[in-house]
Write a protein that binds this DNA or RNA. Structure first.
Length: 258
DNA sequence: CGGCTTTGACCGGCGC
DNA sequence: GCGCCGGTCAAAGCCG
């Protein structure tokens, strides 16, 4: 029973996190649309470097705005970014752990490692072991600010089952996977996932938006997100359902909605 | 022996 | 055009 409570609480937190992420993503999408319509040709890349620095502990980042999913949007069709969606995880791991491995239930094959200019710690490149069937890639790099935090950037979506889903879910950390992003469980013996953010979001927005999640539009958007996650990856049904039910329990007494 | 990691080489994009 | 830089390739080595 206590376990149930704990899991419920965990689900609630994750759900909140997800709501923030979804909304910020939406917001940024809107901003990007406005921005690109006003400034069709003034896009530069960069900004990825600062992503790792800024606000890991807050879980959101004011620099994320121009990164990842929209970084090349002036050149590529938007669809590509939707297909190759990126998400960013912050995973706490022992500073002594040099493996740069983030166990998330999927099996990854390392194909490269680089030291980048902006961060002295090397960045590791992984492909899903199911490649080429599964196009998902991830990059893992230590935070420049906090060496105990690994920043894992996922690109794309898995189109197969999570091979070690059961083990991952039944482990001591028992992290619930939400949405289309993989479970963020840190590597051996480290603590559970700290946080995750969609790239590009304003820190203030993120903090404020947690209070705006009662808005009907957002709730609908949230449900849509949930639904799409369910349809895209049925394996997460249980997790999502739990999250939604947690949301229900949260919402009903407060707002009477849902 | 097969699969994975390591690591230097290579490639393409971008800025100057 | 050149150099820098991030990302990828692939040969060699490692390990179970």
């Amino acid at each position: 029973m206590e376990e149930l409570k704990r899991v419920n609480e965990e689900n609630r937190k994750l759900t909140e996190l997800l709501t923030v992420i979804c909304e910020n993503y939406n917001e940024l999408k809107k901003q990007l649309t406005e921005y690109t319509s006003k400034n069709p040709a003034s896009k530069k890349r960069k900004a990825e470097s600062s992503i790792n620095n800024g606000s890991i502990n807050h879980g959101t980042n004011s620099h994320d705005d121009s990164s990842s999913s929209d970084e090349d949007s002036s050149k590529k069709p938007r669809e590509e970014h939707i297909k190759a969606q990126t998400s960013r995880f912050y995973v706490r791991a022992a500073a002594s752990d040099t493996s740069l491995i983030v166990k998330d239930g999927y099996q990854w094959r390392k194909y490269g490692q680089k030291v980048t200019r902006d961060n002295p710690s090397p960045r590791a490149y992984f492909k899903c072991s199911f490649a080429p069937t599964c196009p998902v890639k991830k990059k893992v790099q230590r935070s420049i600010d906090d060496q105990s935090i690994l920043v894992a950037t996922y690109e794309g979506e898995h189109n197969h089952l999570q091979p070690s889903k059961i083990e991952a879910a039944s482990g001591s950390n028992c992290c619930v996977t939400l949405g289309k992003t993989p479970t963020s469980v840190s590597s051996s013996g480290a603590t559970a996932a700290l946080d995750r953010t969609k790239p590009k979001q304003n820190a203030d927005n993120a903090r404020n938006s947690i209070r705006k999640i009662d808005s009907p539009e957002f709730q609908r958007y949230f449900v849509e997100q949930m639904a799409s996650s369910l349809t895209k990856d049925p394996n997460f049904t249980a997790s999502i359902a739990a999250a939604i039910s947690g949301k229900f329990l949260q919402k009903n007494p407060e707002t009477g909605k849902w």
